[in-house]
Amino acid sequence: MEKDKAIIKALKSTQTPQISVDFQTQTMNKVFKLSEQKRKRAYILNFCLISTVSLGLIVTAVFLLKDYLSFSFKMPAIQFTSSSISLFAFSFYIASLILILVGLDSYFRHKWLIKNQDKQIE
């Protein structure tokens, strides 16, 4: 069958129309649209999934705390004494310190990433 030169020649000489010039551009535009749709669909799916799981976890937690551990959701009455105020001030100081450190870490990481990207482009 490999020797059937006449068939190859007949197939080659058969006039087949040419694909239009802008075929690739048109198709790529559609591919980009499809890709965008795919991305959106994946985002919505992820969002729904995370929301459902989160809601489920919250409901389970509330159910467990309320029914099994007899947890009361009523806010306890807070009485401010001098010792509680100093404890609150200390906690506030530690929390602020952590926030500042985390903020600085994030800021420097961001700067370092941008610097690295610029180097890669160069």
Binding site: K3, D4, K5, A6, I7, I8, K9, A10, L11, S13, T14
Partner: peptide, 20 residues
């Protein structure tokens, strides 16, 4: 050997029609 000869123009035309 029927499809080996590729110089006969008439045969090639018939072949094109047959393929169609």
């Amino acid at each position: 050997g029927f499809f080996e000869e590729d110089e006969n123009e008439k045969k090639l035309q018939e072949l094109e029609k047959a393929i169609a």
